[in-house]
Design a protein around this nucleic acid. Structure first.
Length: 878
RNA sequence: GGGCGUGUAGCUCAGUUGGUUAGAGCGUUACAUUGACAUUGUAAAGGCCCCCCGUUCGAAUCGGGGCACGCCCACCA
């Protein structure tokens, strides 16, 4: 019998227990004594952001995962919980830029290398802090396999996937309108923006014979198209293409009438002017009609020279001045002061999104693969249909499907520096195409060009030599060509002359090219009525260097290529962008395992033997459970399913994970979202200091169904601390019972399999049983029911019910009833031994049942029982 | 506009496929207790399980409608 303090003091226990676990090596599945013959059970930990301060939301996830892992480990599975860290590109860069801002600095005044070095250092520090926090939560993950999304082994896999996607035509580059945050100066996916309702003035201006309405007068400088619905009788006298001279902000302009069905007849005056470069709807209209696109606002959100006297000013500051000017010119008709509408904001900084036309890399979501495999979306949906992947929290399956059905192509490039650089080089250094006609030198997607480089000659357009152009199918919006204009010419628009003399094209006429295209894409008919099927438009070069002529070849390479394989040019320009963080973390389940395979110098902490030949990917994939917050269902889970099926799943039927378990947000007790500004943030480490890890863990999973948001109050955590203490004292009572001298306390000769009076087992206990009381029978029955309930509920991921069952039994059955009764039974010689057996057996069983939830206090009590093995690996009761 | 969900004790929430007297934590009230327990125990109060209709021998649970609230997605110049 060891020392047993009157109350449980977590501060004295948690550190030593965690060290003991670490030293045991049992976090590493290969070290588990019973694991060899058993099936692997794998959970990949959602890698915390490298910038992240600890948050109870994270604590919830780690707790749930640790519960599952400890449960399965005790059940004899070969249990791997793989930890890692996410560089979290944009998120981390935003946090770091805020820090710079406080120091009066800015990334726009820094060299890229310098910036990267600093942020790397910052991330390393935070990574350590975050890992320590995970340890304090008691997480039994395999630290020997700890991995980071920027580890070279991961980057290599990410590059390989990208290259493969490019070859398959899934990854493509296009210049189209995208969400642009002027503060951070990067494009963002739709998921990275949010909407907010604003009440702002809505202005009506005179635009020649029309009245146009707008909430954004500052975008109106370049407006030279006036659009109305083709069936709007009020404007029937205006014909499509008709030119009108009229007075506008900075003097007289010529406007062109456009008829388009996108116009809502009922809204405003039914007439609008368009700003294609800064509005997605306008952009589409411009594309449909082949209109010129003019940029009004620069990447920083300031007006360009087209704005005349307003050039260089920030748009919001300029708005009233422009209205004033228009009013003075007599062009302001009226102002509707309280116009309610939604504005799109950057989800990080809350600044207005200013759509811009930028070259971005995209991943096709809905198009079949060239080898006949279904689209990424279809693969993911099929996985759900076949139940290869199951979303356990079932209400999210519907949400997931709904989102998938409306998915659009995913922009994966970001104009930020913190992240994995896009492994693409553009050949900008060799003069190849020449001749009297305007030429296009560049790349046409493999589906059209058969993967070879060709030079096509374009006739007449507004392009100048050196301009970058993209070819896009005006119907599918898919880009299939990209390159640089080479020489001037003046013939009609819209034709491509083939073959080109230089490369001996396979298609002799445009018709043939179209036919070839259509063979590949039977769903995309190209008709005579869509003359602009090869849509061309002009881009600003993305860098000065880019203006230099080259063959425009796109080279995908994980290492810096020295020369262009197509033309031999040496002036290769690396794509300046980085991948969306989710492009790399979307590959995490297989990448993390494969990368560990690639690390040859790993040694196992306990056995000190190399893990060679132990192919992690072979052994541990597919993983069993993906447990994460529902807020990243689309960001992450969807992408993991799609990318994993693309990479390893479709042919093998291997999903990245079999079950998806989603937990809710941890909220303050009044259901408010926790936020620093509200001052209601619960710091998990603070809670752990005061109440102990076990109390926090139990409070997090107790009495809230999976997937629901969890209101967490200090009262609740305190209550669970009381429970830990109760458990402690149950053990203290059993082990130090005053009336029984220590020497008489029975210690089982081997692991007892069941209660002695349900299946009498004298061999185990070395005693013959004498009198079994009603109380003994009762507690035995209840214990069995509890074991069954906890086991079943854990198997079904109903953690809250398992927790409730064990809590009820321990406190209100065992402590309140049986222990009270035992005080009498121990005084009677006839029932004494039997009572001791029962006390001991029930105690050890509830320690096991409770261990996944409250690992520290249970392991500590266990250590006082003179058991050979640690509780952590002791067999789960049946 | 499209989709998903919630409504149960004063508060926060459980209630697996329909089945005794609907539960827990915290809070409240009374009593007991320093005895394994910075307490804990015993007991109590507190519920038209949002409303209406239906299915059923039987509904908090299933179906339809209504009311209230929340979330996600899309978005009109």
């Amino acid at each position: 019998m060891k020392e047993f303090s009157k109350t449980y003091d977590h501060t004295k226990v948690e550190g030593t227990i965690y060290d003991k676990w670490l030293k045991s090596g049992y976090f590493t599945p290969e070290n588990l004594p019973r694991a060899e013959s058993r099936k692997p059970y794998t959970i990949i930990m959602p890698p915390p952001n490298a910038n992240a301060p600890s948050h109870v939301g994270h604590a919830l996830g780690y707790t749930i995962q640790d519960i599952l892992i400890r449960f399965e480990r005790m059940r004899g599975r070969k249990t791997l919980w793989l930890p890692g860290t996410d560089h979290a590109g944009f998120e981390t860069q935003v946090v770091f830029e805020k820090k710079l801002e406080k120091e009066g600095r800015s990334r726009f005044k820094m060299q890229r290398e310098e910036f990267y070095k600093e942020i790397w250092k910052y991330v390393q520090e935070n990574k350590y802090i975050s890992e320590e926090a995970i340890k304090r939560l008691g997480a039994s993950c395999d630290w020997s396999r700890n991995i980071f999304t920027l580890d070279p082994e991961i980057v290599k896999i990410v590059y390989q996937t990208f290259g493969q996607m490019y070859k398959d035509g899934l990854a493509y580059r296009a210049g189209r309108i995208c969400n642009w945050c002027p503060k951070h100066q990067t494009g963002l996916s739709d998921l990275e923006t949010k909407y907010e309702e604003r009440t702002e003035p809505f202005y009506y201006f005179k635009y020649g014979p029309f009245t146009i309405g707008t909430s954004r007068p500052e975008t109106k400088f370049g407006d030279k198209y006036v659009v109305m619905h083709p069936k709007d009788k009020r404007y029937a006298k205006f014909k499509s293409g008709q030119k009108l001279d009229l007075e506008w902000i900075n003097g007289p302009i010529t406007a062109t009438v456009v008829k388009d069905e996108a116009v809502d007849v009922a809204f405003g005056s039914g007439v609008m002017t368009i700003t294609p470069a800064h509005d997605p709807v306008d952009f589409e209209i411009a594309q449909r009609h082949g209109l010129e696109i003019e940029t009004i606002i620069d990447k920083r959100g300031r007006l360009l020279p087209i704005a005349g006297e307003f050039a260089g000013q920030k748009i919001l500051e300029t708005r009233p001045k422009i209205v004033e000017k228009l009013e003075k010119k007599g062009l302001l008709e009226k102002i509707e002061e309280k116009y309610k509408h939604n504005v799109q904001l950057c989800y990080k900084c809350g600044n207005l999104i200013e759509p811009q036309i930028v070259m971005q890399w995209y991943i096709k979501m809905t198009e079949k693969l060239p080898d006949g495999r279904p689209s990424l979306r279809a693969m993911a949906l099929e996985a759900l249909d076949k139940k290869e992947v199951e979303i356990v929290t079932e209400k999210f399956e519907k949400i997931f499907r709904h989102w998938m059905e409306n998915i659009r192509d995913w922009p994966i490039s970001r104009q930020i520096w913190w992240g994995i650089p896009i492994p693409v080089w553009y050949c900008g250094g060799a003069e190849k195409a020449s001749g009297p006609k305007m030429g296009f030198a560049g790349h046409i997607a493999p589906e059209v060009s058969n993967g070879k480089i060709r030079t096509y000659r374009l006739r007449n357009h507004n392009l100048k030599t050196g301009d970058r152009v993209a070819f896009e199918n005006s119907q599918s919006k898919l880009l299939f060509g990209y390159g640089v204009m080479t020489t001037a010419d003046k013939k009609p628009v819209g034709d491509i002359q083939l073959p080109d003399a230089l490369h001996g094209g396979k298609y002799n006429t445009t018709k043939e090219l179209i036919a070839a295209f259509e063979r590949l894409h039977p769903d995309r008919k190209v008709t005579k009525d869509t003359p602009a099927w090869l849509y061309t438009y002009q881009f600003k070069p993305f860098s000065e260097q880019d203006k230099k002529e080259g063959c425009g070849q796109i080279i995908i390479s994980s290492e810096n290529p020295k020369t262009c394989p197509a033309c031999g040019g040496v002036n290769l320009i690396q794509d300046p962008d980085t991948f969306d963080t989710w492009f790399s973390s979307g590959q995490w389940p297989f990448a993390a395992l494969m990368a560990n395979d690639a690390k040859s110098n790993l040694t196992l902490p306990l056995l000190n033997k190399e893990r060679k030949g132990e192919a992690d990917f072979q052994t541990y994939y597919p993983t069993q459970v993906m447990e994460t917050g529902w807020d990243i269902l689309f960001f992450w889970v969807a992408r993991m399913i799609m990318l994993s099926y693309y990479k390893t799943g479709y042919k093998t039927g291997k999903p990245p994970f079999k079950k998806v378990l989603l937990h809710g947000l941890v909220r303050a007790r009044d259901r408010q979202k926790m936020s620093k500004s509200k001052g209601n943030v619960t710091d998990p480490l603070g809670v752990i200091d005061t109440y102990g890890t076990d109390a926090l863990r139990f409070a997090l999973v107790f009495s809230t169904a999976a997937g629901n948001d969890i209101p967490l109050s200090e009262d609740k955590i305190r209550g669970m601390k009381h429970f830990a203490n109760k458990l402690w004292n149950i053990a203290r009572y059993v082990l130090t019972n005053v009336s029984i001298p220590n020497s008489q306390f029975p210690v089982p000769k081997r692991e007892a399999k069941s209660l002695p009076h349900t299946v009498p087992n004298a061999l185990v206990w070395g005693y013959k049983l004498k009198t079994i009381t009603a109380a003994d029978r009762e507690i035995s029955k209840k214990l069995q029911a509890t074991v069954a309930s906890v086991t079943k509920n854990l198997e079904n991921f109903r953690l809250h019910e398992a927790a409730q069952a064990i809590y009820q039994f321990s406190w209100h059955e065992f402590a309140d009833k049986y222990i009270e009764e035992s005080k009498k039974q121990l005084k009677d010689e006839k029932t004494k031994k039997n009572t001791l057996y029962t006390l001991y057996f029930v105690l050890t069983t509830i320690l096991k049942l409770l261990h996944p939830f409250m690992p520290f206090v249970t392991e500590e009590i266990w250590s006082k029982l003179d058991q050979k093995e640690m509780l952590m690996i002791s067999p789960w009761p049946k």
